[in-house]
Amino acid sequence: MRLTLPRLLQLAVTLLTAAFLIVPAIQSILAGLTVNYFRGLSSGFTLRWVGEVWRLYADSILLSMGLAVACLGVTLVIGVPAAYALAKNPGRLSRILEEFISLPLAVPGLALALALLQLYGSMTGFRTSWTFILVGHVLYTLPFMVRSVLAVLMAMDLKSLEESAATLGASTVTRFRTIVVPNAMPGILAGALTVVTLSIGEFNLTWMLHTPYLKTLPVGLADSYASMRLEIASAYTLVFFVMIVPLLMAMQWATDRAQRISR
């Protein structure tokens, strides 16, 4: 392959774009690992700031993980049967319901949070519990689960598959368990991936709903940028990366695996 001028330009633009995206990330990671950011890398590397982040924000990290798992659980229990019901009854009412479920996507998280606060803010026990944030996260992530599962269910001949299972003696529950769920698995996993990622990263709705004792990972990050030294905030970013990247990779792997035939 000869390096002509257009090719050189292409390469330059690609490299510049990549650098534009990756340099700040590298800089931030390095900032979290240097002894003193203002003196530069010559001050040496340390894990002290990472330790400091753990000491200050371990609760936020655990809360975010717990929230993500709980949110995934709730969206699975509500979202998969909901998508199934929508796929089975392809009428106008179903389309309206589908749009209704998707409404939180169009409404800003702040507005959603305000509505929740107005309605439930006076219920002190609920307001100060982590389940209050969970409700917000479920509202926000549910449409992703429903749409992802619905897309897969609509792509297959659900009616014939269920009817043939029925003639073979399978009850409604058995059909759902052995035919619907396994065949919807790629959609369920893709939805799960989205839900967990969104729940861990969600900021603006959570920021409105949180209390001083309930800070999630991104809320803690904002807090550390606002009130700690830059090295701690950068180390925090590093912790965030380390947590979410393996999670993304594991989910991606699971999605690929589900698409292959399972016996």
Partner: peptide, 28 residues
């Protein structure tokens, strides 16, 4: 339908794509 004990071959065959040939036949 699930208690009538009928065997049915559908126009599209409606084989279960998540199962092998053996698992399809053994499903009933």
């Amino acid at each position: 339908v699930e208690r009538r004990n009928v065997g049915m071959v559908f126009q599209s065959y409606a084989l279960f794509p998540n199962m092998s040939v053996r698992a399809n036949i053994g499903y009933g």
